[in-house]
Design a protein around this nucleic acid. Sequence first.
DNA 1: AAAGGTCATAAATCCCGCTTATGTAATTGA
DNA 2: TCAATTACATAAGCGGGATTTATGACCTTT
Lengths: 318, 318
Amino acid sequence: MRRLPPLAAVRAFEAAARNESFTAAATELGLTQAAVSYQVKALEERLGAPLFVRERGRARLTPLGHRLLPTLSQAFDSIEAAFATQREEDESLLTITTTHTFANTWLAWRLGAFQMAHPELAVRMATSNDLIDVKAGDADVAIRAGPGNWPGLECHKLFESEFTPMASPECIAAEERKIGRKLQPSDMPNAHLINPGDDWWQQWFCDNGVAAVEELLRRPGIRLDNQANEGHAAMAGQGFALLTPFLWKGDVAAGRLAIPFPQSISARGWAYWLCLPPERRMVPKVKRFREWLLAVMEEAGRPNTADNDTAPAAVMES
Amino acid sequence: MRRLPPLAAVRAFEAAARNESFTAAATELGLTQAAVSYQVKALEERLGAPLFVRERGRARLTPLGHRLLPTLSQAFDSIEAAFATQREEDESLLTITTTHTFANTWLAWRLGAFQMAHPELAVRMATSNDLIDVKAGDADVAIRAGPGNWPGLECHKLFESEFTPMASPECIAAEERKIGRKLQPSDMPNAHLINPGDDWWQQWFCDNGVAAVEELLRRPGIRLDNQANEGHAAMAGQGFALLTPFLWKGDVAAGRLAIPFPQSISARGWAYWLCLPPERRMVPKVKRFREWLLAVMEEAGRPNTADNDTAPAAVMES
DNA sequence: AAAGGTCATAAATCCCGCTTATGTAATTGA
DNA sequence: TCAATTACATAAGCGGGATTTATGACCTTT
């Protein structure tokens, strides 16, 4: 339980003492001289002891005031410093939280460009699936997959979360050799699926007129926890995975992945979203990132854009 | 030029953060929970970043809030400490400023009794002639000789500043031997006066029907700067000095000084006063000293009081 | 469910802190 | 010596931020 004098009065005193002038203090504080005089007097009355001697039209510190001053100045200094540090750090460090998948297949490749454009910013990317952390101040912005109606967050749709089977060209060729013709959707239940237990296979079969195969759910396979890993497995020739075309454009273009049924793209009813606390939307670093990301998305969405011209030849695991 | 957030908000945040509860903070600050909530929110909006995560009906600190807390707590601690120290010091140290004369002839002897009665107080006596220093906070109370109408000070009359010639008994005896009869006021111009240039001699002559003696002013003598020193000189047998009976009662009673004309006491029109800043009159230490001093004076003023029963045998020079 | 706790929010109120305006005293400069 | 200037004090009144009251939503506990 603290027992402090009114802080406004303390503040006025500190400024007056430091400046050795009520008038100067008033200017510094953006007040009138009368206000400072009032506050100082109030503090003196509260203490029951004078802080200034008024003589010859000047205000000089009493010994008591003199003893008090340095401590108070330091205290205000550290308060100021605390907030200044916070402001600086907050201005110069952009923290992005995103899913493993998006980080790995898309953002990691392109964040460099953003960094180049904003050399004064330190950019930190963290992968996690908690949306709470942007509200908790752990991150400035979040990129998440979902329905996009998170309460209390401003969400910008980045792209639809569609999916279609993909595999390495070799894998597809081998499969076609096996069955002696070009692949059809109905062949998929018998192909080697990386994660056959994935519910979305059922969805895809349904969308493509293939009878649901209950048995798939019991078939052994690997849960790779996220699409990024499944994609890599597919590129390694381990079978078919359901992947989001948008995220693997580069690998498709480079021939590391192939899409056997380009017309058969299913939607999850989800999308990827850029989410941010609305009250921070105009904070410079947030604004810059938001504008940059949406601009890049815009460009990537245009039909004849070679979005992945500069994409590296392989996905780097961190 | 400082740039601080509103201190009321900072204070509310600090309490809330320290208590990890708005409600508890409100209790501590003597406010309602709503007030704390309001202030915290205001601070968060000002910073543009959340300080608390509101979850499950509780408020938990964000990393930012967590970083801020210790600095702010410390800052408030030191402000509190500064004023607490001041309060303690101010409560436990009584500083009295007085004239050399009064200190030497009266107060120094009796301050011990006050100290004994108030062992918790540290008592400091300083001699100086500046009345300003009580206004300037250098001293809590002042004892001064003068007309007693100092503006802005509460003044209690202690005793009238009367004076009459005194000398050591030996000195008087020698003088009477020289003139062959008992001394009369008219003999004084020819006696050895310690400070013949003192204007008050003229006053005393006038009051006692002795013709003014211009010549006295040009007669060599010693200026001893204050009555205490003149009194000591008189006791040492160096001649006659104009002294205040009240201040030398003890020495008279002990036979170190004698008053040749007890009926011929002149008044300066002055008095000795206890002066103190009215706003501090009820501060405990001030109140105690004031009451003690006035009580002692009261007692000393009563006719048949042996005021100096316990007076030491000699005046001690410090 | 009901009870009891926490924080958020809206609206109304209060009072503190501020400004304006003026006074006083000391200093400066002609 | 007489403005002119500067600094602080003081009174009065206002404005709006701080606070309270009242209510709601949400969670935990029993």
